[in-house]
Design a protein around this nucleic acid. Structure first.
Lengths: 198, 198
DNA sequence: GTGTTTACCGAACATTCGGTCAGTTGACAA
DNA sequence: TTGTCAACTGACCGAATGTTCGGTAAACAC
């Protein structure tokens, strides 16, 4: 068996994982298209060419980041708790878990939500994201059919507004100074499910 | 020779306004940084260099678009109806008007909400936007102080969630197929003020 | 008809882009 | 001491970028 943890001192420098983490940070600051490999190199403290020792290229960096976000979201909808019980409860659970993924993988999901389909990589990500949205849309429709959601608003609109609210978290949430994922989900569910007005 | 168009064309070609409108459309499709002047030229049906006859450059195009969005939003908070009466009513009115601006100037606001501060132009826009956010934040705080908003959620969080929902409209709203601005505002206010749950 | 203006084209500009490659460094094994 | 090799540098490439400029066809003014 391979030794679980090599206790030897590792050589200094980066690996594909640390390159990805730092790159995604810069992508989110400047936007993917607004980020040059020079920008990444500066953030990593190495030369441009050193990046290609760890990673095949810029677009691969994007692809890996997007997969990390999408894998998290699909793990939510694949869970059994999103598939059994009253639709309104499944919806609430799914919203709560989505918020958790959003917070846990904040930079990756942030990047995902800004993708516009400029390349094959981006289009593939958009396609997977649409699949996720379809699942949510179905959940809301079921909750409406069960009579658990106010009938005077179109379920399709509810879906967009509800997950618009969830996704907007990436625009302002700061993990250091902010609330926890559960605090966030609590506040969001109180507002959207019960309403702000006393 | 093909017969020339019998109608006397008063003015053929583009002007700064039509260039801006089309450019903003492309910016929103591909992202500002992802859009080249070639892309714009293709969308306009002219050569790259022709654009510079109507407009000083790419960044000026962005600046004009962002101003159009920000001017609309500031017109809302400058209105007297956002300054007098119970805070909860002023908040509701402001949300409704913001949705209206968002729909009326959809492409411009969409562009604004994606700005990351990569240039002086973008930083100036972000600064103005922060000023707008400050006004909203104050409104929510007043409504909370008046006891019109549920006390178990931090007003700062409410501000972000509420306008996160409003701003998310730019991510999915399609004026052709969708509801009107008032329909949107109705649905949004029902969800956030009264809650989805029956 | 003549001159002016409007709206554009095509060719070039300097710069930046993502990416390649031969070579260098320094820690470690033998 | 020598050799290995992961990790990196620096010089470079062709393509693409935003922008400039000299020229020009057509519409308009006289």
């Amino acid at each position: 068996m391979a030794p679980p943890t090599p206790t030897r001192q590792r050589k200094r420098g980066h690996d594909p994982e640390s390159v990805l983490a730092i790159a995604v940070g810069v992508f989110n600051e400047r936007g993917y298209d607004g980020t040059s490999m020079e920008d990444l190199a500066r953030a990593l403290g190495v030369t441009k060419s050193a990046i290609y020792y760890h990673v095949p290229g810029k677009e691969q960096l994007l692809a890996r980041a997007l997969d990390r976000a999408l894998d998290g979201l699909f793990a939510v909808v694949a869970d059994e708790r999103a598939a059994s019980g009253p639709a309104i409860d499944r919806l609430e659970w799914t919203v709560r878990q989505s918020v958790r993924i959003l917070v846990d993988r904040l930079p990756y999901v942030t990047l995902l939500l800004r993708v516009r389909g400029n390349s094959g990589t981006e289009q593939a990500a958009l396609e997977r994201r649409r699949e996720f949205d379809k699942f949510i849309s179905l959940l809301v429709k079921e909750a409406a059919a069960e009579g658990s959601i106010r009938p005077d608003v179109d379920p399709a609109l509810v879906t967009r507004l509800l997950f618009g609210t969830v996704n907007s978290i990436t625009e302002w949430y700061q993990p250091a100074r902010g609330a926890s994922a559960d605090d966030l989900a609590d506040a969001l569910l109180k507002m959207t499910f019960s309403g702000l007005r006393v």
